[in-house]
Nucleic acid binder design. Structure first.
Lengths: 102, 102
DNA sequence: CAGGTTGTTAGACGGTTGTAAAACTATTGT
DNA sequence: ACAATAGTTTTACAACCGTCTAACAACCTG
């Protein structure tokens, strides 16, 4: 019961996701967010040698791509991976590079 | 009988692939290569408004990432998508962002 | 309210990268 | 051999992007 309706990505979102995943640090952040069920943003700062401004920027990109859902709760920011979007991205990637006999 | 042994990606290759997929033009090239069974490089030049130098560069990146196999036959360069690598990438991507209860 | 913590925004800097022009190699055809 | 075609490499340039510092806004606690 993880994913329900298969998500349809626009080309724009497909591009944003690909770019968001391209930076190793941002990918690592995404992995950390995925590792904890609800990840307070500050925990990220402990694990990566980057400024809070940089983390904020990366999270913004991840949200813009639709890969992460972030909502502020009090002074904390909770981030959550949207696995359906990741799934839609990989599916679309494989579809686009599928056999010519499609 | 498409894929046989599941490929194991190094972190380095994982990064190269992500970067290779990040540029929309390069992604489009990959799709075109995937569309034709064996794609002579020149056909790419007809379909994209970029110089041959640029195409050559993109192909080099795709090969470096392991996404494409290119071999020269006479004066033509034949490119082929390595779907097992694409599959390994998507699998690894999903694995890395999988449930914390992994 | 004062001070501390969390995250955002703006601006700047440096490195990376997509692109093209030009010169070059290699192959094919006349 | 000459010319044409296919692709590579080098160099240069503009745009993008990851990063930081600094200033800011919002929230919590004494």
């Amino acid at each position: 019961m993880t994913q329900r309706t298969p998500i349809r990505l626009t080309s724009r979102q497909f591009e944003l996701i690909a770019k968001a995943l391209a930076d190793p640090r941002r990918m690592a952040l995404l992995e950390t967010i995925a590792g904890e069920a609800e990840c307070p943003c500050q925990r990220l700062r402990d694990q990566f040698p980057v400024s809070k401004a940089t983390i904020s920027h990366h999270i913004k990109e991840l949200v813009r791509a639709g890969l992460v859902d972030a909502h502020k709760e009090g002074q904390y920011l909770h981030c959550e991976v949207r696995r359906e979007v990741l799934g839609a991205y990989t599916a679309e990637l494989l579809r686009r590079t599928g056999r010519p006999s499609r």
